[in-house]
């Protein structure tokens, strides 16, 4: 594992010592890197260079950008309209809608289709993501037939966050302590994070929703560290009472 974060700019030369070498596995280049034959690797994005020695992979992490669906990612989408066999779901603004079949819900049959009004939110997994086709989603695990937390999100409020922050929120070691801090002082709320840069939060108390949403969006826009996040949470709590 890389010991300290290494930042690169597009066109930078990457030090060969940073590129992982594995005796058997082929080197895998993640997003933001390009192979220039014969043996140069050039960054195409500005961001943090992350190497994974076990997988023999190297990639660049950025916080910005437009969401591009990838198979297996969890996303929060807005139902645009219902067609004959599927819902059209928007994952991000001004992009082509993704398809969510009526039958990809828990215990959905042809007779008992889920009724979702235009504008409702769904938490779904991407099942198909092709460059030249609309993405497809599902709200049920295909083998168990259980929803496993996926499905329509009712009530609550959805906030826009950056893609990098959404990814960090979903990782256990993402360095985001806002939610844990808020929970530890006894606030009750439920959240869902979509990889497409959406954060949903619901609670009985409107003030809690606003406090959580603001703390999350502020930690994102001001890119706060763990200690600053704790301070921010304390400030928000003081405002609430």
């Amino acid at each position: 594992m890389a010991s300290q974060p290494m930042f690169v700019l597009p066109g930078d030369r990457i030090d060969p010592s940073l590129i992982p070498s594995h005796p058997k596995k082929a080197l895998r280049l993640g997003p933001g890197l390009q192979h220039a034959p014969p043996n140069d690797i050039i960054p195409t994005l500005a961001g943090r260079l992350v190497t994974d020695h076990q997988k023999n992979a190297i990639r660049i992490e950025t916080a910005t950008g437009r969401y591009v669906p990838r198979v297996g990612e969890l996303v929060i989408g807005t139902v645009q309209r219902s067609a004959a066999e599927s819902f059209f779901v928007t994952l991000s603004d001004y992009t082509a809608p993704a398809l969510l079949p009526h039958l990809s819900f828990e215990s959905a049959t042809k007779k008992t289709r889920p009724q979702l009004a235009p504008g409702s939110l769904v938490y779904a997994r991407v099942t198909m993501a092709n460059k030249h086709m609309d993405a497809e989603l599902e709200c049920v695990h295909p083998s168990t037939g259980k929803s496993e937390g996926l499905g329509p999100l009712t009530g609550g409020m959805v906030y826009d966050i950056s893609l990098g922050f959404a990814r960090r929120l979903m990782m256990s070691k993402g360095g985001i302590v806002v939610l844990d801090e808020m929970e530890s002082v006894g606030l009750q709320f439920e959240t869902a994070t979509g990889r497409n840069g959406k954060f949903w939060v619901n609670s009985e108390n409107t003030k809690t929703v606003i406090a959580v949403g603001r703390a999350i969006t502020e930690s994102d826009t001001q890119s706060l560290g763990a200690e600053e996040q704790r301070k921010l949470v304390r400030k928000r709590l003081k405002e609430m009472s």
Partner: peptide, 20 residues
């Protein structure tokens, strides 16, 4: 490109919060 519209949750939440 389609204009981004607020979802139902956002509509109801903003209205509810304003009433409070």
């Amino acid at each position: 490109p389609r204009d981004a519209e607020p979802s139902l949750s956002e509509r109801t939440f903003v209205t509810k919060a304003l009433n409070e």
